[in-house]
């Protein structure tokens, strides 16, 4: 009989035992539902009895709920994983795991899946709240599916960020601080750089540069590093009748086809997650860690 990953079984057992998991889930849903209710009251009052009122309320509800869910996923998932491997080091059980027949891959994978399982539970729990938006109309299945894919890949990327710091550092406090720091740097740093860049280039940039294929790809790439910008751009493109998987950019005489921001964002997230996962596995190899320490010590001398 095929056995489940031991780390996964142990972590799920201890994560779901006791009230903590349920309290977190309850708080998470209460915030979502509260925001949705407040928004509904505000919009319904504003719009009144227009013909399209239902559609507008539906869209507003959907985008707000998705945004709040995305914020929560960005903040909760790195915290779920940042304590995982560092926590084993703190409890002094790390050596026991490494000296057992578990492979570094099993350790890292078990930690990731147990955190992701909980993150997926949070995402699945949003679906009923999101489906409220369906009652009002104005939202298609495509938008909902893209939102769920966006949430899932975000959960994956931000969980591996936490996992990486957890494998790197000795204390869970340090790992959590660095994980949250990385998330803040990504979420605030990218828009900041975009703004600074556009201020510097501004209107003085030659149109040859702005229209060049490289510039188009680079700007889409930067946008696709940010979940809110990438998914938000996709939403506005869809509502203005754009394609689902790609967009056509017209530059002067020619047309350039680029993947839709959400596609690029998902692909990049999966790529970076895989890279961070590989880095974490390397950090968990006992023999390698020692060798690294040795080289570092030699360098110091």
């Amino acid at each position: 009989m095929l056995e489940l990953n031991p780390i996964l079984v142990k972590d799920l057992r201890s994560r779901m035992r006791g009230a903590r998991a349920y309290i977190l889930l309850t708080i998470y849903l209460l915030i979502l539902a509260g925001v949705a209710l407040l928004l509904y009251v505000a919009i319904a009052r504003d719009i009144g009895n227009e013909l399209n009122a239902g559609r507008q309320i539906g869209r507003a509800l959907f985008f707000t709920i998705s945004t709040v869910a995305l914020i929560e996923v960005c903040l909760i998932t790195p915290v779920l994983t940042s304590g995982s491997i560092a926590g084993e080091k703190e409890r002094q059980t790390y050596d026991l795991l490494v000296a057992s027949l578990l492979t570094p891959w099993q350790i890292v994978w078990g930690k990731l899946v147990s955190a992701l399982a909980f993150a997926l539970l949070l995402i699945v729990a949003i679906v009923p709240v999101m489906s409220l938006a369906f009652l009002f109309g104005g939202i298609g299945l495509t938008e909902v599916l893209i939102a769920i894919v966006g949430l899932v890949v975000t959960a994956l990327l931000y969980a591996t960020i936490g996992l990486f710091w957890s494998a790197m550092l000795q204390s869970s406090l340090g790992a959590t601080s660095f994980a949250i720091g990385t998330v803040i740097a990504l979420l605030l740093g990218i828009p900041f750089l975009v703004v600074i860049f556009s201020l510097i280039i501004g209107s003085s940039a030659p149109s040859a540069l702005l229209d060049s294929i490289w510039f188009i790809y680079l700007s889409r790439f930067v946008i696709a590093l940010h979940p809110f910008i990438a998914l938000g751009t996709t939403a506005s493109q869809l509502s203005s009748g754009g394609e689902i998987f790609f967009e056509v950019v017209r530059t002067g005489a020619t047309q350039v086809v680029v993947p839709s921001p959400w596609v690029l964002y998902s692909a990049l997230s999966i790529f970076f997650s895989a890279a961070l996962l590989a880095a974490s596995v390397r950090l968990v190899q006992p023999m390698r860690t020692g060798a690294d320490r040795k080289t570092r010590a030699v360098k110091k001398r």
Binding site: K10, R17, G18, E88, R91, Q92, T93, Y94, D95, L96
Partner: peptide, 11 residues
Amino acid sequence: FMPDFFGVYDN
């Protein structure tokens, strides 16, 4: 292997 500390898990 039994190290000089005892690693425990809560719960």
